[in-house]
């Protein structure tokens, strides 16, 4: 893993092995803890500055990586240095992405406490449907334990027993993942097939011109996309002016012109909205519940 070229860490070795590794990890852990303690000691009026600064530098990295010229510009002194800097930012991107991913993955237990609290209370107090909460706990830990065991051989039990345990875990994991996870997911997803029928039936009443327009377009597209649509207007000639009245051609025209224009209008608006919001967050100009809190 070639992290070094972009991170000047000349004073400390990149990798250590053997007993020294434990020493280094422990030392770094202590240094990190000391850093956290130092953060805790920051007086309230400087806290805002820390948060604003960190946010700004986080955003600055990705902005500069894109905005700085990556090739020296002729006749401009110093541009070679800028380009070199910009290119080193680009090279560091996979490493930054790895770090961000690993750090974010430590949030995996964040919400779980809340989930456990709700369900353990249900089980303890035997509220109505407490057995459902019990099923929650059982399945949660079963798949977690089985999953971890199937990957890590337990050599202490002796080779035979370990192999048996692993085989059982692999089978159980198969049942839980192929049987439960996948099918529950796909079934829940497929409920939409039913709901879309009742939604269309109920919602598409010609209460207003708007609803009528939406209904009409949806109807034409629904017919035009499937083979039946082509068959319905088969009697029209396949070339010439009348051909454009064939359902599949109307459908395609609707999709590629009015629909495309409408989609693009929405996207332009959303894109500008996202730019504005990003700017406000980056420069800590944002206002609202989360941002107005006293630190």
């Amino acid at each position: 893993m070639g992290y070094l070229p972009d991170f000047p860490m000349a004073l400390l070795p990149v990798s250590v092995h053997g007993k020294m590794l434990a020493v280094y990890i422990f030392g770094a852990l202590m240094a990190g803890a000391a850093g956290l303690v130092a953060l805790m000691a920051v007086p309230p009026r400087y806290r805002k500055i820390v948060v604003v600064g960190v946010t700004f530098f986080g955003g600055l990295y990705f902005s500069l990586e894109f905005l700085l010229p990556h090739q020296p510009v002729a006749h401009i002194p110093g541009s070679a240095g800028v380009a070199r800097f910009a290119n080193s930012l680009t090279r560091a991107k996979p490493n930054i992405a790895d770090w961000a991913m690993v750090i974010a993955s430590f949030t995996l237990l964040l919400g779980t406490f809340n989930l456990f609290a709700i369900h353990s209370r249900a089980v303890k107090k035997k509220t109505e449907g407490w057995y459902n909460s019990l099923a929650f706990f059982i399945t949660f830990f079963l798949i977690l334990i089985v999953g971890i065991l199937k990957d890590s051989p337990v050599s202490k039990l002796g080779p035979g027993a370990a192999k048996g345990l692993q085989s059982v875990c692999t089978s159980l994991y198969g049942i839980l993942f192929d049987g439960f996870v996948q099918n529950l997911d796909a079934t829940m997803f497929s409920l939409i097939a039913f709901y879309i029928v009742s939604a269309a039936y109920r919602a598409f009443r010609v209460r207003s011109a708007e609803a009528g327009l939406m209904m009409g377009t949806a109807g034409i597209i629904m017919l035009g996309l499937v083979p039946v649509g082509a068959w319905l207007t088969n009697w029209l000639p396949s070339t010439g002016l009348l051909a454009s009245l064939r359902l599949e051609n109307i459908t395609y025209w609707l999709l590629t012109w009015p629909n495309m224009a409408a989609q693009r209008a929405i996207e332009f608006g959303l894109a500008i909205g996202a730019v504005a919001m990003s700017l406000r967050i980056w420069l800590s100009l944002e206002r609202g519940s989360f941002f107005d809190r006293q630190l």
């Binding site: 879309i196 029928v197 269309a200 039936y201 109920r202 598409f204 009443r205 010609v206 209460r207 209904m215 109807g219 629904m222 017919l223 996309l225 499937v226 083979p227 039946v228």
Partner: peptide
């Protein structure tokens, strides 16, 4: 699937028409 979809689309359009008939 394409024929199943054809059938389903016609079914839904029929439903919309019936619903609107009732509504009107």
């Amino acid at each position: 699937s394409s024929w199943a979809l054809s059938a389903a689309h016609i079914y839904i359009i029929l439903l919309i028409v019936l619903g609107n008939l009732g509504y009107l």
